[in-house]
Design a protein around this nucleic acid. Structure first.
Length: 421
RNA sequence: GGCAGGUUGCCCGAGUGGCCAAAGGGAGCAGACUGUAAAUCUGCCGGCAUCGCCUACGUUGGUUCGAACCCAACACCUGCCA
C-alpha cells in the first residue's frame, strides 16, 4: 500500500538492541500490532507511553507506573537539560536508572518547547481554534521565551532567565547523555495560525534539522560505542496540508547517512482534531512499514482509535496526568470532575469497571474530600486511574486488532464515552 | 464606673457623603486542560430579572437632593484605667 520507494536498509541491524516487528494487521486499513524491542525491554504496540517530563511521572511512584501497565516512559530533553543537567542524569546512570524506571524510555527533543515557549507562549497547541486570531499569537510573542532561526533556537530559561541555545546537534548531544532508548529529532512546531508559506519553510527547516540530527546521532553513536543503542525517530510536520505532510514523511524516510536511516518516526505538530485521522493516514502511507510510528501528544479515546486505524503504533500525552491533578477523571461513560458537588456523598469508585488501584480501593466521595482538603493524595490516586484508563484502552485496542473485534470495540467504546456525539 | 476603639455580604476584610450591590482574599458553584513554564487557569458568586427594580453595611431615629460613610440613642464586642 505504501507508495514510497524501497526504503534504505533498517538501521537497527541485529545486535543493536533495537528493532520493530509488525504483528497482525487490521483488515481494510493501516492499523497493526507490533513489537518494539529496546535495550531495556519490549513494547507491545499499539501502546500508550506515559509522560514523565522531568524524569518523574508527576505524583506517582515508578513501581506504580509499572503496576498500572505502562510499558514505557517519555521524558523531555529541554527540561532535563535545564534541571538537573544532562551531565547529572548521565552520571546517575542514564534516565532509566536515574529515575528508577527499569523499562524502555523515550525523550522528546525540546522541539515542543520551541513552540510552547515561543510563538505559542501561554497558548495550548491549537486543536480548537475557535475564537483565536492571528493577533493572539502575535501578542503572545511579545513575551516569548524562545526565538527560532534556521540554525536552531535560542531559549530563555523559564527557571532563572538564563540564555540557552538549542540546535539539532545540541539536542542530540543532550539526548545521548540522557540515554533514553528512543530519542526524537529536534523539530519546529508551528501553530494553525501560521500561514501556508511559513508552514512550507518550517517543514523544510525541520527536515534540514532532521538530517543534521541523524548525522550527529551517527557520530555520537560511534563515539559512545559502549553505551546501549539509542534509536532515533524523525518527526513529520506539515500541519494540515496533504502535500506538505506527504512530502515531509517521504523525505524523512529517504534520509540515509552511511547506510543508516531513522529507526522510527514521530508524527506531530499543529492539526485540527477532525483532520487527525486523515493526516495520520497520509503520513503512514508514505512511511516505511517496518518502522514504528509514534503519535506525539495524543490520548483522547476517539483520537486513539482514529490514529491506530490509520497506522499509528505508539502514543504519549500529558493529558491523563495533568487533567487528573485538576480533578478530571475518565470513565467508560465519559469524563467528569470528581471535585464537584455530585461526588460529595457518592461512595462508588470512579469507574466500577476499572481494575486500577484507585478504583478497587477508593470512592468518589473520598477523592472529592481529598481535593477539597487540598491533599496531595488526590492527585496521586487520580493520576493512577487516568493513566491506567488510557493504557488499558490502548491495550484493548491492540487485542482487538489481533482478534478481529476492532470495529465492535470502537463502536461500543466511543458510543459509551461520547453518548450524544 | 471612667476613657478609647469597634460592629460591612457564608467567613475574613477594604471602604468614611453621590463614581457602592459595596475592593481584595477565602469558602461555595461550574468549566477548561492533547510531544507539561499547568497540583494550573477561567467564569459565576444578595434576590428577581431586559435596561432595571427590590433588599442590604448591628438596631431605631435624625441631618441631607442623596448615607455603609455625618449626628443621637440603644444593643453587643474589644482594650486601658479603677
Amino acid at each position: 500500500m505504501s507508495g514510497a520507494s524501497p526504503s534504505p536498509a533498517p538501521p537497527s541491524a541485529p545486535g543493536t538492541g533495537f528493532g520493530f516487528e509488525v504483528g497482525d494487521t487490521l483488515a481494510g486499513g493501516a492499523g497493526r500490532t507490533g513489537t518494539i524491542t529496546t535495550p531495556h525491554g519490549t513494547i507491545a504496540t499499539p501502546a500508550f507511553v506515559v509522560v514523565g517530563t522531568k524524569a518523574t511521572v508527576k505524583t506517582v511512584l515508578p513501581e506504580t507506573v509499572a503496576e498500572l501497565g505502562a510499558q514505557a516512559v517519555l521524558a523531555n530533553a529541554y527540561h532535563l537539560y535545564l534541571q538537573p543537567g544532562a551531565d547529572v542524569v548521565e552520571a546517575g546512570g542514564g534516565l532509566g536508572r536515574f529515575m528508577n524506571w527499569p523499562g524502555p524510555t523515550y525523550t522528546d527533543s525540546g522541539g515542543f518547547q520551541v513552540m510552547s515557549l515561543g510563538v505559542g507562549f501561554k497558548k495550548v497547541l491549537a486543536m480548537d481554534t475557535a475564537g483565536l486570531a492571528d493577533d493572539d499569537v502575535v501578542a503572545a510573542g511579545k513575551n516569548r521565551l524562545a526565538a527560532v532561526d534556521d540554525d536552531g533556537v535560542t531559549f530563555t530559561s523559564h527557571l532563572d532567565g538564563s540564555r540557552h541555545r538549542f540546535t539539532p546537534e545540541v539536542s542530540m548531544q543532550v539526548q545521548h547523555r540522557l540515554g533514553a532508548d528512543v530519542i526524537f529529532a529536534f523539530d519546529e512546531l508551528t501553530t494553525l495560525m501560521n500561514t501556508r508559506g511559513y508552514q512550507e519553510s518550517s517543514v523544510e527547516r525541520t527536515h534540514a534539522w532532521a538530517v543534521r540530527c541523524l548525522a550527529e546521532h551517527r557520530r555520537l553513536t560511534a563515539e559512545r560505542a559502549t553505551a546501549p543503542y539509542q534509536a532515533l525517530f524523525g518527526v513529520v510536520q506539515g500541519a494540515q496540508y496533504e502535500d506538505l505532510r506527504r512530502r515531509a514523511a517521504r523525505d524523512l524516510a529517504a534520509v540515509e547517512i552511511d547506510g543508516h536511516s531513522f529507526d522510527g518516526f514521530g508524527i506531530g505538530g499543529a492539526l485540527e482534531k477532525q483532520n487527525l485521522g486523515t493526516i495520520t493516514g497520509w503520513v503512514s502511507d508514505e512511511l516505511p512499514e517496518d518502522r514504528p510510528r509514534h503519535m506525539l501528544g495524543i490520548s483522547e479515546p476517539d483520537d486513539l482509535f482514529t490514529c491506530v486505524e490509520n497506522g499509528a503504533d505508539t502514543f504519549d500525552c500529558v493529558s491523563p496526568s495533568r487533567v487528573a491533578r485538576n480533578a478530571a477523571v475518565y470513565t467508560r461513560d465519559g469524563r467528569f470532575n470528581v471535585n464537584t458537588a455530585g461526588s460529595r456523598r457518592c461512595f462508588e469508585p470512579i469507574d466500577a469497571e476499572c481494575d486500577c488501584y484507585t478504583c478497587t480501593h477508593y470512592t468518589r466521595a473520598y477523592l472529592h474530600h481529598l481535593f477539597k482538603a487540598k491533599e496531595m493524595l488526590a492527585a496521586t490516586l487520580c493520576t493512577i486511574h487516568n493513566e491506567r484508563f488510557v493504557v488499558a484502552l490502548v491495550d484493548r485496542i491492540r487485542t482487538a486488532v489481533s482478534d478481529g473485534s476492532y470495529a465492535d470495540l470502537k463502536a461500543e467504546t466511543l458510543g459509551r464515552y461520547y453518548p450524544v456525539r
